[in-house]
Design a protein around this nucleic acid. Sequence first.
DNA 1: CCCCTGATTATCT
DNA 2: GATAATCAGGGGC
Length: 203
Amino acid sequence: MCSIDFNRRADEVAPLVLGSILWRGPVGLRLTEVEAYLGPDDPASHAYRGPRGRAVTMFGAPGCLYVYLSYGVHRAANLVCSPAGSASAVLLRAGEVVAGRDLARQRRGWDADDVVRPDHRLASGPGNLGTVLGLKLTDDGARLGDDFVLEPSDTPSRNVLMGPRTGITKAVDWPLRFWLAGEPSVSPYRRSPKAPRVAEDRL
DNA sequence: CCCCTGATTATCT
DNA sequence: GATAATCAGGGGC
């Protein structure tokens, strides 16, 4: 098991973090779906317009958490990549709860024995993943190795698939979404209803 | 299964 | 004022 080099760009880091376990207290999450955002080069990235507002964190130290408020409701987490001063990040989209199941279900407001809501949906989607980890906006900028710990998988994942990112309206066809084949926590691809119908926004 | 909508707030135009 | 790296729930087929 070698630790992950977050000085690399997010599209290189993204497939490597799949299968590793993100710990936050008693909750352990095996990452099954992520997306790369490439900073100033990427019109879909929060860092597209430089180190301003919430995007400042993305230009900070690699290996930190970038937490933002999504649609005014959810908290989503990224792993900051690229050397400080530049910016890219890996958005955590889904994971499998491998520890702390009771607390995870409690944070989702799910009864422990609710059959209609299976465990594999606990951390499916960026907002749900953030809820399961108990993310707060004050976690923005947190460094891995303290409150949050990333435990790399001992063997590189060999069942990584790649495709377009979901829910965005710019650069919609860039293949920067990575996931593990056959994982039930991975949600089916959904193109944004507002996305252009032709790929007219490629560079 | 698919499509549509409301909720809620930081950021951008 | 509009949009957004979302989610849950509803109605229709």
